[in-house]
Design a protein around this nucleic acid. Structure first.
Lengths: 334, 334
DNA sequence: GTTCGGAATTTGATCGTTCAAACTCCGCCG
DNA sequence: CGGCGGAGTTTGAACGATCAAATTCCGAAC
């Protein structure tokens, strides 16, 4: 028969102080006299006391828990960056005393519903949004209901444009895609002038951003190919392109596209053709394709910084652009 | 100025009943008379009432929350299966009214510490273990402290051996690796008799299990190659092997190995050589390599089944082997 | 020696729910 | 007609912490 778990009352009795003093040692140690604090800490250690978060939540109406959505797996490698981000977020949240609760939801409406339940039930008190888009109803709802949140991804137009950039009610963290492709393109130019961009159809903020970085380096007459984010389509697009013109390197909007381009190049008898991907997924790693690394760990760190900041007292900026890093692989070295 | 969130008291007043009746409608609707229940449900809907999980937890000492560990990302594709599992678990847990809390920990000891805190704080009341190994201290600790848990992976010897198989205190769910490689080998034999197994060094339960399925089909004189789980090493092993002997197909213990084998085959001028991987990761998908799919969704479902079962009243079995599924890709068809 | 005031500590109330026991109906049986 | 019993409902207490206000302590100032 196991003994009941010790409470703050038990600790207090043992240390010869009152409940509240124990509570103070836990939450505001600086207001407790040194000798008293030591006695209480000793009692805590002896009893193996751990505070009841349930009781704390009920009283304080705070849970120190972050909610984040997890999609069902859809195949492909695009989800990996998000998973890495979540791993990093979990890793970084723990030392800050924050917990992470993941939830499922089929669409934005359902996600709002779920957030509402979790929030009103006191299970979470902050949210991290992913996969945001312009006019995202989730962000609107969260802002309207005063739920602190940070988005991974720019949901409200491009960097530098629009008044919402500095809006403390719409904080976000994103990776500077243009900087990534700029670095990739500069690197690719070492192999020759004709650096093609293999991107997605225009219209996706992320894709346009990545294209911009390349465009800034190659100028207006740079050659651009377009493909959906599929290996097969990217491959056939690249095969056609390579047959038509001489090309020195290909900078891609994703590793999926890069893989297609790489396969096309190999098939065209040019396995050494420089191809640079984006996201630095295991596919790029395995095939030794250079790729732009998003550094999800830094994103996670920045997200947490913004998430614990208080818009009413703290100063901005309320958005962060993380500088990605080009990872050059053996295939392209020397 | 926003109104205070409604409580069970508010709902009760509105419906003209008592606190407890509202509580009963929520938790044991069958004991409430039909007309009364309807009135209460109407009041709940009108007020938009959502129960406070914090208060419920405090009172019942249950949280309906599952804790699961998330490692930091280590590169490679091996983590993907685990991520898919977690996605599936989240997806399946929600409709069962269970929540999922993820936590970080550097090693087994730290994980035990974290579980203890989360558990005593009432944040989680069940755990899913991953990456278990024989004599895993985490499982020992959990069993000893009466924390319900289920392991993804067999931590206590092989299936069919040992008395612990039916132990309700050590429940697990795993994928039947042998069945997977058996199917893979049978498929590979359509391309010829000489089906090689490319596996990891002996000693890992998972690897040995997967080898067994192949061995059962090819017999004692089947040829086996060994490599650590790295593309580069697998490739060089396969290249050497292919140079030495004629081979009709290669069955691999992982997609990483399969990728290495595939590259070796292509390099040796045999891009059409049948290679079968394991885990059905995006890499296999992208390169159109056939692979054995673990079906993490089924694993998740089984884990949840065991996790909500009560060892003292329910009957076994307390372990489940999930039958994996061979995914044949275009490259190998026809 | 009394008064003042800040620091340290204690006390009573409270958060929102569920448990356990008590109570109210109401029909049925003897 | 009184007592019994079960279904349905209500009431008081408890879960374990923190908040807010009250109290004690103690040295300095007058």
């Amino acid at each position: 028969m196991t003994a009941r778990q010790p409470t703050v009352e038990d600790v207090a009795r043992r240390a010869g102080v009152s409940r509240q003093t124990v509570s103070n040692v836990l939450n505001t140690p600086e207001i407790v006299r040194g000798r008293t604090r030591e006695r209480v800490e000793a009692a805590i250690a002896e009893l193996g006391y751990a505070p009841s978060m349930a009781a704390r939540r009920l009283r304080t109406k705070r849970s120190a828990t972050i909610g984040i959505h997890l999609d069902p797996y859809a195949g492909g490698i695009s989800g990996i960056v998000l998973d890495r981000f979540i791993h990093a977020l979990t890793d970084r949240a723990t030392p800050r005393g924050l917990r992470i609760l993941v939830y499922a939801a089929a669409d934005a409406q359902e996600e709002i519903q779920r957030i509402r339940q979790l929030r009103e039930g006191g299970e979470i008190d902050r949210v991290v949004l992913t996969g945001t888009f312009e006019g995202d109803p989730r962000a609107e709802w969260l802002a309207e209901h005063d739920v602190p949140f940070v988005a991974f991804g720019r949901p409200w137009g491009e960097a530098g444009t629009g008044a919402q950039m500095g809006d403390p009610l719409r904080p976000w963290v994103d990776v500077d895609g243009a900087a990534g492709t700029r670095a990739a393109t500069l690197f690719a130019r070492e192999h020759g002038e004709r650096v093609v961009f293999l991107g997605w159809p225009a219209g996706s903020g992320t894709g346009d951003d990545r294209e911009r970085g390349w465009r800034e380096v190659v100028g207006v007459d740079g050659l651009r190919w377009t493909s959906l984010d599929s290996v097969a389509e990217a491959r056939s697009v690249a095969e056609r392109g390579l047959a038509e013109r001489d090309v020195d390197a290909i900078v891609c909007a994703s590793d999926t596209l890069a893989l297609g381009a790489h396969l096309a190049a190999s098939h065209a008898g040019r396995p050494e053709l420089a191809v640079v991907g984006f996201d630095n997924t295991p596919v790029a790693e395995a095939l030794e394709i250079s790729s732009v690394e998003q550094r999800p760990e830094r994103v996670a760190e920045a997200v947490l910084d913004l998430l614990v900041a208080d818009p009413t007292t703290d100063e901005g900026p309320w958005h962060r652009l993380i500088e990605p890093e080009l990872v050059v692989r053996a295939r392209d070295e020397g």
